[in-house]
Design a protein around this nucleic acid. Structure first.
Length: 463
RNA sequence: GUGGCUAUAGCUCAGUCGGUAGAGCGCCUGGUUGUGGUCCAGGAGGUCGCCGGUUCAAGCCCGGUUAGCCACCCCA
């Protein structure tokens, strides 16, 4: 068989990359749990009609089909109802889970969920067809207090901040509020809020002039209205002064609405709390739009400082009608980290590295196959005390056995004591192959320095 | 789904005017009689993505196809 090539969009790391990813996942999980989020996992598939509730994303859904499925078995209409698709995010499955288990959950319900998702998109740098998301959400029954819109991004800021000491860059959480945008646009006389948001979202890529032109051509905006949209989008800042600037702008266009005022009140509360609890992390940015149509309040996008081109690594917002059975609604707010996007950048940009790609701290050399059992015994003694140990695959020359360890990043090689001519057995020795230091050692008591016991994740510059 | 670019050794890449395939790194062996890394010597490894066409002759030119990268769309 010809050598297989990697499938674009389906990332697979080598073992040291996986060490980094696993560290990221462990760190996120620990922070989520510190904040009281309970972990769940949902099935990989949802009925297609559930998945399509999100709107324009239908083209991206991978549908599930049995190889043996007979084409003429059932009527097409019947099948479409039962058709399954792989979930393309964790929010929609979570909404379904909440509805399904509403009677057994305690509200407000806080959960984290770390799973793979699938999207049939064209892959690119940082964009995958199969990737891991790490979500936190909180949903209420009937209503959800606004303060969760403040707490969720701060929890995420803490989770991402916990990765700083292994070399992950600073993050900026950019926030906006749908009520502000919608209130302003409607006050301006623009009713196609979705369309306006979509155009404004392109600002960074195509520039203000092009956006103004699109607003005129697509949304039928007057030059004056387009100008207002651009002026709103230009506002950003870390303190509550931005709220006054928006209010003043709206007043100058005579576009103040009740909805705008509500949104500004919420945005002010978020900015004010964030400035106090996580200074410098949360920035109000009135051009943050978010394509998804179910957001109703705060919206969030997160960039890695210095890697803004990568796009958002953590996004989310407030939604009020996603989980609804017609009788009860369960409004929620949540954010989702693109773990694969983050990790791929950490590895490709050489920001973070693992001290080694194997767990093994000690390789026990084998003097000759007749005495392999002595090496096995040493490894067993080390493992019994929690030291990851492996035994050399062959009784090759010691130079080769050391090389075996070196290529894997295993820091120590253990040499079982050799029989002398008088029949006595010399002491075991352990060698630090980085320094070359070799000392007598006893497998019943020796241990490597704590920092060598397990692979560690460190800033790449330090290596 | 649309457009542009690319495809040669395990990796990164050169390959002139169309004339039978190269480098660096990595790997293997030996120098080193059971202690790696440096150094020296030697060696293995290629259907030039695939199919077809032009030509005496194609890695190179032409057509198709597949895959990859980038941009759009959308988004983590």
């Amino acid at each position: 068989m010809a050598r297989p090539t990697p499938l674009s969009g389906f990332p697979e790391w080598l073992t040291d990359g996986r060490v980094v990813e696993q560290y990221v996942l462990d760190t996120l999980r620990r922070t989520f749990e510190l904040h009281g989020f309970a972990g769940i996992e949902t099935r990989a598939v949802e009925p297609l009609d559930q998945l399509l509730r999100k709107g324009e994303t239908s083209k991206e859904v991978y549908v599930l089909r049995r190889l043996q499925e007979d084409a003429d078995g059932e009527p097409a209409v019947d099948r479409s109802e039962k058709q399954l698709g792989l979930h393309f995010d964790l929010t929609v499955p979570f909404a379904r889970y909440v509805l399904e288990n509403a009677g057994r959950l305690a509200f407000p319900f806080k959960r984290y969920q770390i799973q793979k998702v699938w999207r049939g998109e064209r892959p690119q740098d940082g964009r995958f067809r199969e990737f891991v998301q790490a979500d936190i959400d909180v949903v209420g029954a009937g209503e959800l207090p606004y303060h969760y819109e403040v707490e969720l991004p701060l929890a995420m800021a803490e989770a991402l901040g916990a990765l700083r000491d292994v070399g992950v860059p600073e993050v900026r959480i950019l926030v906006n509020n749908r009520k502000v945008a919608e209130g302003f646009y409607r006050g301006l006389g623009l009713d196609d809020v979705e369309g306006v948001l979509r155009q404004v979202d392109k600002l960074d890529k195509i520039g203000p002039d092009a956006v103004a032109e699109l607003l005129r051509a697509e949304q039928g905006a007057t030059p004056e209205q387009a100008k207002g949209c651009l002026e709103l989008a230009a506002i950003s800042g870390e303190d509550v002064a931005v709220v006054e600037r928006v209010r003043a702008l709206a007043a100058s266009y005579d576009a103040v609405t009740e909805l705008l005022e509500t949104g500004l009140g919420e945005l002010a509360a978020l900015i004010e709390a964030a400035a106090r609890r996580a200074p410098g992390v949360v920035v109000a940015d009135l051009k943050i739009a978010r394509g998804l149509d179910y957001y109703t309040g705060s919206v969030y996008e997160t960039v890695l400082v210095g890697h803004e081109q990568l796009g958002s690594i953590c996004s989310g917002g407030r939604y009020d009608t996603l989980a609804s059975d017609g009788k009860n609604t369960y409004p929620g707010v949540g954010l989702s980290i693109g773990v694969s996007r983050l990790v791929s950048r950490l590895l490709s940009a050489g920001l973070v590295t693992a001290t080694r790609g194997v767990p093994t701290a000690v390789l026990v050399a084998v003097t000759d196959e007749a005495h392999r059992d002595r090496s096995d015994a040493v490894a067993a003694a080390l493992r019994a005390r929690g030291v990851p140990a492996d035994v050399a695959p062959t009784a090759a020359k010691f130079g080769k056995q050391i090389k075996f360890a070196d290529r894997r990043g295993i820091p120590f090689v253990w040499f079982p004591g050799q029989a002398e001519e008088d029949g006595t057995v010399g002491p075991d020795q352990v060698k630090d192959i980085r320094s070359g230091d070799q000392v007598d050692a006893d497998a019943a008591s020796w241990a490597p320095p704590a920092e060598d016991l397990f692979p560690r994740v460190v800033p790449a510059a330090a290596e």
